[in-house]
């Protein structure tokens, strides 16, 4: 499949979502309108609890209780599908399977012959730099390796849209930077549409074409920041900092400029 036809477009209109609360239904998302063209890279950013993970779960098809419309490509969403891959903050590998077996399960539903699965798994592990760790168990991997294995497992399903729920936020700074670069390269090579949820303003500014800023109670879109900077992006250029400044402003974070720029805008809370 060539690059242009790989990505799937996403169209969300008038999306409302409630969760059952103690005192009746509690509004979680209200009036979300979002159009993502095929092959774009967008980031959702906003305070904890504003419904970012909920949006991804709805697009993934893990939860079908909503009103409004969500369309990915031509077909309406009828449940999870390998064309919509998902990555989480935790690696979520199956602990009793080796890296190789985990990645092979990711390709399970593609209906490939066993030999083709073997070849695909080998190629993916090579690509994420885990060829030497194929027969290790998840408990034997470092955080960065485990997340790479998880990426390989998701890619094994040959997704055309990737839903990334803070996939790098549990990693140390070096692994995070390395994986951001690898994700960017993967995106440029394959043209998979990327929907990233992040708490990290720098990550959002570095990776995405467009940043959707959400606010909470109920979750809705506050503003959209376009990011037309050419790639590869220079993280210390004035233009890059200008994008970051717009994001801080959109999130109502006081940067205390010109003396300091906080790098950790929104502390993560333990919300399931």
């Amino acid at each position: 499949m060539d690059r242009a036809s790989r990505g799937l477009p996403l169209l969300i209109s008038r999306l409302d979502k409630d969760y059952a609360g103690k005192a009746g239904p509690r509004p979680v998302l209200r009036g979300i309108d979002l159009e993502v063209e095929a092959g774009a890279f967008i980031t959702l950013i906003g305070p904890s609890g504003c419904g970012k993970s909920t949006i991804l779960r709805l697009v993934a098809g893990l939860d079908r209780d909503y009103s409004g419309s969500i369309r990915v490509g031509e077909a309406p969403i009828r449940g999870p599908d390998l064309s919509r891959g998902m990555l989480f903050q935790e690696h979520r590998l199956f602990p009793w399977l080796t890296v190789r077996q985990n990645v092979a399960l990711g390709a399970f539903h593609c209906g490939l012959a066993p030999a083709a699965v073997d070849a695909l798994v080998r190629e993916l592990l090579e690509r994420v730099g885990l060829a030497h760790a194929a027969d290790l168990f998840p408990s034997q991997l470092s955080g960065g390796m485990a997340q790479r294995a998880s990426i390989a497992r998701t890619l094994a399903g040959q997704p055309r849209l990737l839903l990334l729920d803070e996939p790098f936020s549990a990693l140390d700074a070096f692994n995070r930077l390395a994986l951001q670069l690898e994700l960017e390269r993967l995106w440029q090579r394959t043209g998979i549409t990327m929907i990233l949820v992040s708490h990290d303003i720098e990550e959002a500014a570095y990776l995405s074409d467009r940043i959707v800023v959400l606010e909470a109670d109920p979750g809705r879109i506050r503003t959209v920041v376009e990011n037309p900077l050419p790639r590869p992006r220079d993280r210390v250029s004035p233009a890059f900092n200008a994008i970051k400044a717009r994001l801080f402003e959109a999130l109502h974070v006081d940067t205390g400029a010109p003396f300091a720029v906080p790098t950790d805008p929104a502390p993560e809370e333990a919300i399931p």
Binding site: R92, L97, F108, H109
Partner: peptide, 25 residues
Amino acid sequence: ADIVEMTRVFRLKRTTVLRRIWIPL
């Protein structure tokens, strides 16, 4: 629950879930 959810994300068949998840566990 996370692991169970992954079996949905990857659309594993019941027999595969039994063989790859429940029996080893």
